[in-house]
Design a protein around this nucleic acid. Structure first.
Lengths: 144, 144
DNA sequence: CTGTATGCAAAATGTTTGCATACAC
DNA sequence: GTGTATGCAAACATTTTGCATACAG
């Protein structure tokens, strides 16, 4: 039916790594686990505040940094917007961003991946990372 | 031998559009016309300052905005860095960024372009714009 | 108890803007 | 002359950080 929910267990992941599970972190992690994918920091903060009004934006950022450093989430900076975070660990994919709604759709093309490798290699480079984003609008939608 | 220089004439382009050619603008435009491609605002500002110490960073940004609005340059925000500007108008291309040096190489792949179109269409979207960046390092270079 | 995590406020970054003055046309 | 462009400083949006306090383990 809908988009598959993110079914990670960040809490145990961090606990196992010896990182303290505080009330703020518990709240933030639950939001990441249960919410839609690709929220930005303010969105996470807003939702966290509803559950626990004492959570601060700093802590949201700090928690994102911990998760990012541990490779548990990825940070994306789409054009003209703040960083958005997504659970990492699945297969690599690229993004298609609906410019009208901000909605993000993930896609993957092995052909494109292969072509990228080929291009980099032919220029004497190896790829460290890459980013492919398609900014799109629904076919047939009226211009704003 | 080296990379082809940017041979535009921004000054006449703007004059023809009824935009005043001031001393600051003349300086900034010359830098864009003669300098390497893909400078950021501070780089342009630094070079402008050497020629005319009264030029301000605000004016650099404002001039970039004018050029961008007119489609004369394109703004790129590569990962972790400030906006970088490049002369527009050539054929579309993507970018390969050397993560060690910050150097930018342009490339183009009709195959990738076609695949992108195909992917977007198959998902019910039309592409408004896109961005493909390969972050790379020279093959064989030692890790820092 | 000890050291890590927190909230807050302030700093850092990159960019834009309000305003009074300067200058291109 | 007239209105656009400028420099400056302040505002801006996002993210990071210093510090004293709180709290997880």
């Amino acid at each position: 039916m809908g988009e598959a929910k993110n079914r990670r267990d960040y809490e145990n992941e961090l606990r196992d790594a010896g990182i303290r599970i505080t009330r703020a972190r518990k709240t933030i992690l639950k939001i990441l686990e249960e919410g839609e994918k690709h929220p930005d920091a303010m969105e996470i903060f807003r939702r966290a505040s509803e559950i626990d009004a004492t959570v601060s934006l700093s802590t949201v950022y700090r928690t994102m940094k911990i998760l990012e450093d541990r490779g548990a989430i990825q940070r994306h900076v789409f054009e003209g917007g703040p960083s958005r975070f997504e659970p990492a660990g699945g297969t690599h994919h690229d993004h298609l961003i609906d410019t009208d709604t901000g909605e993000v759709v993930e896609f993957r093309s092995d052909k494109i991946e292969a072509l990228q490798e080929e291009i980099a290699r032919s220029l004497g480079y190896e790829i460290v990372s890459h980013r492919l984003e398609l900014y799109v609008r629904k076919i047939g939608r009226r211009r704003g």
